[in-house]
C-alpha cells in the first residue's frame, strides 16, 4: 500500500519536474536561424560545390581517377603548336591541353573531396555556393570546358590530320631507313604497356 502511494507521488513529482524544464525553455532564446533571411557563414573547409579554374588545369586526370563515383568527365585535345592559351593564375604561360569537356555532375557527386587533394595545380576546389537547386537534374552537370563544340570539332579534325601526317612522316622515315628495322614488335610492346 505504501509503495502504491509512493508510486503515485513520485509519478506526479517527476511529471512536474519535466514540466518545469519545458516551461523554463519557453522563455529561453530559440536556436533557429531564419534561413533565407539570415545566413550562416560557411566554414572555410565547407564542401558545397566543386569549381574548376580551367585556365590552370593541365589535364592530368588525377581528379578523375580519384573520384569514387566517376562524376568527373574530362576530354582533352592537344593545343595547336605555338597556340597562346593565356596565363595561369600564377602568371605562367599555359600549355599542352584544351578541354572540349570538363564536366562535373554534382548530382552524382558524393562530396567526399577526394578529387581536390591530388590536383597538382590546385585548380579544382570547393566554393561556398550551396544554393544550387535545380528543377532539371541535367542542370546540375556543370561544364568547365574552355572550347566550344564547334571549335572542338575543328580541333579534332586538325589533330586527326596531324596524326595522319605524322604517320606518313614516320612511314616515310621507315621507308628511308630501310626495311630491316624490326618496327612491328616495337609497336606491340608499346601497346601492351598501355
Amino acid at each position: 500500500m505504501r509503495a502504491y502511494f509512493i508510486d503515485i507521488f513520485s509519478g506526479v513529482g517527476s511529471v512536474l519536474v519535466g514540466m518545469r524544464v519545458t516551461f523554463s525553455h519557453l522563455f529561453t532564446r530559440s536556436v533557429t536561424e531564419q534561413y533565407p533571411r539570415e545566413k550562416i557563414e560557411m566554414f572555410d573547409r565547407s564542401r558545397n560545390r566543386l569549381h574548376v579554374d580551367i585556365e590552370d588545369c593541365i589535364g592530368c586526370y588525377l581528379c578523375d581517377k580519384a573520384c569514387p563515383v566517376d562524376c568527373i568527365h574530362i576530354d582533352t585535345i592537344k593545343a595547336r603548336p605555338g597556340e597562346d592559351l593565356g596565363l595561369t593564375e600564377k602568371y605562367e604561360k599555359k600549355k599542352t591541353f584544351v578541354f572540349p569537356k570538363f564536366d562535373i555532375d554534382m548530382a552524382e557527386c558524393c562530396y567526399c573531396g577526394l578529387c581536390v587533394f591530388p590536383c597538382p595545380t590546385e585548380c579544382i576546389y570547393w566554393i561556398s555556393d550551396y544554393e544550387f537547386a535545380e528543377y532539371d537534374r541535367s542542370n546540375l552537370n556543370y561544364h568547365f570546358g574552355n572550347v566550344t563544340p564547334e571549335d572542338a570539332r575543328v580541333r579534332y579534325e586538325e589533330a586527326e590530320k596531324l596524326k595522319i601526317q605524322k604517320d606518313k612522316e614516320i612511314a616515310a622515315k621507315k621507308a628511308a631507313a630501310g626495311t630491316e628495322i624490326p618496327s612491328q614488335p616495337k609497336d606491340d610492346s608499346t601497346e601492351s604497356a598501355e
Binding site: 519545458t22 516551461f23 525553455h25 519557453l26 522563455f27 529561453t28 532564446r29 530559440s30 536556436v31 533557429t32 531564419q34
Partner: peptide
C-alpha cells in the same frame, strides 16, 4: 508556437 518555443525553436 508553444511547442516550438519549448523546444528552442521558433
Amino acid at each position: 508556437k508553444i511547442a516550438a518555443h519549448m523546444q528552442d525553436r521558433l
